[in-house]
Design a protein around this nucleic acid. Structure first.
Lengths: 209, 209
DNA sequence: CGTATGCTCAAACGATCGTTTGAACCGGCC
DNA sequence: GGCCGGTTCAAACGATCGTTTGAGCATACG
């Protein structure tokens, strides 16, 4: 009753990470067992503890593999517009949204957004602390830029709205990947359209009177 | 290392449901074991299977106990404003938001919103089908009223925005209950302020050009 | 050749999981 | 008293969990 025993190509570590991404998205961190996981990856059961040390470390590595590149892209995009006089709210939000959308372009990236949404909903302390200590500076930089562009909002008010917008975006992007799209729209055009969709929604949620 | 063995008062079934709400919110459906659960409730391990049949049925009952009342309140509030000529988007959104906020006023209700957010993030098929078949008509009625008040939006566009707003609201309300508030604001005034906050955000997200 | 080193393997470890069992207890009713 | 339906109890069931073990295999270097 487990998933198909088909293994992807690549090294043992990469096959484990790929299978973990899929099963964590489908059944959660506690619901996916190492036996299902290694069977799906086509590797031996002991390979997880050999290469990663423990299941918890594997979970961290699943996040690290994607978030290192994702948040780096976000910071690079933010640096191009932050602090400049003509920068708009749209520019900053696009710097936050577009890298995530490009990540969820391929199948495994979209699965990771599901995993991220799960971690967002779970209030697990150890996982939240891992994400906060390793990637907290990213959200801090974006928050500072939001504060600069929305000076009329009090700090509590701004944090409230950022929290709401972040929740909406995380939820929305966790639903990607499984969407059947009309064939007459090119991949690129559709992604561009989705970015504008999310950006406009976020602008409305952040800057409404 | 488990939670304190303090049991709440009430019947065995109610004690189990209360402990389940707490532990499901903290550790998830798979992460919370029946042994932790019954120990926290102060009842025998076999009581769960005796009163509910299985762990899965217990999960369904945790939802049913809260959602029956919550969605009934929402429909009653919606019926008071739906279809009327002077009804605004604010009225409809308030009918959706206020009952949930009143539920999360007490501690156990706030815990349930966490459980609901978890179910929202998990893409578990059986649980989604349970929620859809039992409470799908509620969201369908609200969607119909949104469509009436936002005729300029295409159907896909409307569904997109409702999905984004629902994700934001679910995430926001899952964070309640643990918030320390300044003592100079009354409980009622704070809730009223929060309702207006969420309503205004949702209006902006739904009706932006 | 011998021998390190990095990796994979089947097998087993103890712990914990959801569920079931059968005896014990309880109030109310004949 | 005797009995009975509803409930609680300790104990055990087989299954599955994360992790560890030690032998086996391959490749590289002296």
């Amino acid at each position: 009753m487990d998933g198909s025993p088909v293994n992807s190509s690549g090294s043992t570590k990469e096959r484990i990470l790929g299978a973990a991404e899929l099963l964590f998205a489908q059944r959660g961190f506690e619901g996916a067992s190492l036996r299902q996981l290694t069977a799906a990856a086509g590797v031996n059961l002991a390979a997880v503890n050999y290469h990663f040390g423990s299941k918890d470390k594997l979970v961290e590595e699943v996040f690290r593999r994607r978030l290192d590149a994702l948040n780096e892209s976000r910071l690079v995009a933010l640096a191009k517009v932050a602090g400049a006089p003509g920068t708009t709210l749209e520019d900053v939000l696009e710097a936050y949204i577009r890298p995530a959308l490009e990540l969820s372009h391929d199948n495994s990236g979209a699965l990771f957004m599901r995993v991220l949404a799960r971690a967002f909903a779970e209030h697990d302390d150890s996982l939240r602390q891992f994400l906060s200590t390793n990637y907290g500076h990213v959200m801090r930089q974006f928050t500072a830029e939001f504060a600069r562009l929305l000076p009329q909002l009090s700090k509590p008010e701004l944090y409230w709205r950022i929290d709401l917008v972040t929740g909406a975006l995380t939820h929305a992007m966790s639903g990607f990947g499984m969407i059947q799209r009309k064939s007459d729209v090119s991949e690129h055009a559709h992604r561009e359209q989705t970015v504008q969709h999310l950006v406009r929604f976020a602008v409305a949620g952040l800057s409404h009177p």
